[in-house]
Design a protein around this nucleic acid. Sequence first.
DNA 1: CAGGATCCCAACTGATACTG
DNA 2: CAGTATCAGTTGGGATCCTG
Lengths: 137, 137
Amino acid sequence: MDNVVHGRPYEVTKDGPRFRPCAPHGVLSRLGDKWTILVMSHLAIASGHRLRFSELKHGIDGITQRMLTLTLRNLERDGLVSRHYFPEVPPRVEYELTGMGASMLPALEGFTSWIRDNWPRMEECRNLFDLAKAEHG
Amino acid sequence: MDNVVHGRPYEVTKDGPRFRPCAPHGVLSRLGDKWTILVMSHLAIASGHRLRFSELKHGIDGITQRMLTLTLRNLERDGLVSRHYFPEVPPRVEYELTGMGASMLPALEGFTSWIRDNWPRMEECRNLFDLAKAEHG
DNA sequence: CAGGATCCCAACTGATACTG
DNA sequence: CAGTATCAGTTGGGATCCTG
């Protein structure tokens, strides 16, 4: 009803709370894709939160031209990044975090700092889990 | 070298900072998959942070048995959820947030509250972007 | 009840080649 | 330089059937 957890409303039925897929998943799945966080992090530490295409491409190990383009288009579509095109020869294109994009950084930082703190333990848990699974058969 | 942003170390080269794929992406891609956040949210609001398989299945609209099992196995492997098996007939299995799993909730909540606040604007941006793209050709 | 095993399709990603 | 277009490989997820 008016209940909300993790940004998601849920209804209380006689069988318990019931969620349906909605907003948070869309954003998290975007951030969880292969390159988006790396692009956001790069822009986050850049002066003016602004970099040109080739700087991003060079700074992100292993990204292809195609995937960088797709990632930036998605971020632009979501209003998190703005694209600045300079009709020179050769052309120059700069990408910049928007106000909304920059406003996301503290929340993202909060979350990723939890990850940093807990990552070693998660690795340990995974190893234990895989080990237990391997030996029991 | 010792620079860190979003939980990720990066090295400063003569051409600028350079990241490589690492920890935060793994966690965010897990949370960004189709069902994980829904499962976490459900356990978050459950009494004792604990629910049985069928309660989760019934409470998450559209999830299949297979995907719920896979999602829970991944969470268990990461040490975020623990599995309690009761050898009765018919069998009963309960899933519970671990201490580490519960410790993630505030960070997740911080992030999803940002999403909730900014979601309408993101939707608007998407519509504008799609519209502009459609009319320019 | 909980979940393993299979099959199949859709979506994501990479590699490569081409262009304003 | 900063893209777009195309093709191929891989992965994610749904549907279905079977079992302790």
